[in-house]
Design a binder for these strands. Structure first.
Lengths: 414, 414
DNA sequence: ATTAGTTTGTCAACTTTACGAACGAACCCG
DNA sequence: CGGGTTCGTTCGTAAAGTTGACAAACTAAT
């Protein structure tokens, strides 16, 4: 058309193919994008001139015909930063537009929280770029995964456990300002983990899967139709509140939710202590540090440890079967300090086999504790793309509005 | 562009506006679609020539300036048929492209099932068109909502309870063939109900909501991101299998699922009988006919009936809280012979208030037993549209594939 | 070595589509 | 009846994509 939307679509198509399917020739691009070779040549020329693409040698395969000039996305065309913010440490990674992670760094989270942490993150980003000899100004987007509930209208973390005075702070805005106006996005950490698994883990190529993170608490990231789903208020996947594993009517279970009370680190530790039968046992808050001891004990064949893990697996399996009944995912990925342990996986699967006729596939996170970090990189990459190659306003098929006057007019008796 | 995709987009945009926002002038369309007046004129002329649009008089509003010629979608440009197939009756409706329901008819489901039922449906469609003096050949699409599990790859109902020899039948193909090749789509009845609520009920304008149908069994239709979600294998929303309300480890609860065993019509009746304490009580299969008696009893202030309904509401509320924890919907619509009753709504809400800090909104179906029928009409309309104004292959933003070789290459110690 | 077949990428001519500007038409109001 | 405003059309221009032909480059078989 006369405006740019048509060219834009084709540019996006070409970039899309090159990003997902590695180096391609123009002829191949034409076939895949269903464009003429001509148009592809134009598009490629434009993109190469703008620095997005680079020639990457000839196709050396000995097929018939002239060998093709291959093009690929120029990794140097842009940088992104992904950050995984936790209560004890901050992990950051520098990535490029080619999908490579160039460098990572981890620092301890400053206990003062608030603006100090924001400064830490900005410094991390700057330091990573510097260490690679790159200008931090080339960073197109920074994505931050953080625990807490995100208010999607304002972009503000409504409450952020473990990080002092971080709630009600417009982290995205402040962080962006500190880095010279870099586009900054913030997302819940579990959701980011799910996007990490989608990008580089077990979720690759899947349309529908969930990531359940079990650690101090329990949470779930949901991918349906290939996209992250956060629900009407951003609380989708807050499965700690499922009425499973503990009495949902007990007010004591209301703040954190029954399932979290039954599966979180503290619950596992408490269960372990109770099973040990040590007199001093009973529910002691702050037993969380015992979680490693449970796994150690189970490795030694310690009866109470194994029993505690089995009970944990049992409740987890119940929750998974409930999630599967609702969402019917292709895959459930277990992550987090507790959930990702192989020791837990086996009993979870065996309990699931008792619960479901065709048990949903369950796997331990492929990325372990790097899921959040890599997910943040993926989010940053996607956001950068969306910004640079903005899609024209999508026009969906809308069903004609029902003619309310004539909806019941024709109703006839049998 | 030189190909048609640009014009196609604009045609879709214009149709979309006209369908959702009633009659509009060309100038107004140009503003809304962000197209030039000329382009809109061309598009409108094309669509009018093709019979999709019709002029619908002048704008009579006494504003300044020349009065505009208004256009609207010509309702006569196409017909659709929606069918709600149940175990006891078949409901069918004839709709037009303007979103009006022209005529409805209901017949008893032939107990012989199978091909006989398919013939019945075809006859219904033909009869409805005939009664309106319209050619059945003008029907662009027929949509059928049916109980049972749909195999989405083949389009075959894998198993269809209540309708003999209906499983493993390619209903869509057979029905289409009987109607001279009409496009035919089949979908699970609960999912269709959800689309009905989205089109003409409480789901209008909502992006995320669910419809829970409680009757003989229990099922849920899920709309996320404005679209129906059916999961990886089409089993999303089969919440009868949630481990709530009955022992999920009891093999007796495995075939139908714990929640269905606890909330289905039979369970309600059984609970009622047990509470009555009549000696002959005990779990008697086929108690389902007692369901109306329960509601009657509750209306009279009958203690066992009220208690049975309260228990039903309690389990339902637990299930709803679990669904809300997973999906965080804007709204939960209760439908079905049991679920849609107002008597149940109040206790469900009050139990939910005990379970959730911010209880999800729960409403009774706006369409009652017509949800499935109207949903089928909506599905038929959408399918017809998609077919007639096929969208160009959507090109999403894909994040560059992770450079797996260099994903961990840059990992550095702290 | 030569030839046939295949594939890549470019050139040129043509078509479709959209836009902007200008203009006449129609309508309201004072 | 004239001024102001909005509607819809005409005309010329620009953008974008397609088709078809063709040269270049490469492989494989004769």
């Amino acid at each position: 058309m006369a405006d740019q939307s048509s060219r834009l679509l084709n540019v996006r198509a070409v970039m899309d193919q090159l990003q997902t399917s590695g180096p391609l020739s123009r002829a191949e691009l034409a076939r895949r994008c269903r464009l003429s070779k001509q148009t592809v040549s134009e598009v490629v020329a434009q993109l190469e001139a703008a620095g997005w693409l680079r020639a990457t040698g000839e196709s050396v395969i000995g097929g018939a015909g002239r060998s093709a000039a291959l093009y690929e996305v120029d990794p140097a065309s842009g940088l992104v930063v992904g950050v995984d913010l936790g209560g004890t440490k901050i992990r950051a990674a520098l990535g490029d537009f080619g999908g490579a992670v160039l460098r990572e760094q981890t620092v301890a989270t400053d206990p003062r929280g608030g603006h100090v942490v924001i400064d830490q993150i900005a410094e991390l980003a700057r330091g990573l770029a510097q260490a690679e000899g790159l200008d931090v100004g080339r960073v197109a987007c920074l994505a931050l995964g953080s625990p807490g509930a995100l208010d999607r209208r304002t972009g503000v973390m409504a409450f952020a456990p473990n990080i002092p005075s971080f709630g009600d702070l417009d982290v995205a805005a402040e962080l962006g300002a500190r880095l010279g106006g870099v586009t900054t996005v913030v997302e819940n950490d579990v959701n980011v983990s799910a996007l990490g698994e989608q990008w580089a883990g077990h979720g690759r190529g899947l349309q529908d899967f969930v990531v359940i993170a079990v650690g101090t608490g329990i949470g779930m990231g949901i991918v349906v139709g290939g996209e992250l789903r956060t629900g009407a208020t951003g609380a989708a996947g807050e499965i700690g509140y499922m009425p499973i594993g503990a009495d949902p009517f007990d007010p004591a279970n209301r703040a954190k939710g029954p399932l979290e009370m039954a599966t979180g680190g503290e619950a596992l530790a408490r269960r372990y202590v109770a099973l040990q039968g040590t007199a001093a046992a009973g529910p002691v808050a702050g037993d969380r540090h015992l979680v490693p001891a449970v796994f150690d004990g189970a490795a030694r064949g310690d009866w109470p440890a194994i029993a505690a893990l089995h009970d944990e697996a049992r409740v987890l399996a119940l929750a998974i079967s409930a999630v599967a009944a609702v969402l019917d995912p292709e895959l459930v990925v277990l992550g987090g300090g507790i959930g990702a342990r192989e020791e837990l996986l086996r009993p979870v699967r065996s309990v699931l086999a008792q619960l479901m006729a065709r048990p949903v596939e369950v796997r331990a996170s492929a990325l372990g504790d790097r899921a959040g970090l890599l997910g943040a990189v993926a989010v940053a990459l996607r956001t950068a793309q969306e910004q640079l190659f903005a899609a024209p306003a999508p026009i969906g098929i809308t069903v004609p509005a029902p003619d309310l006057d004539r909806l019941s007019a024709g109703r006839l008796p049998v």
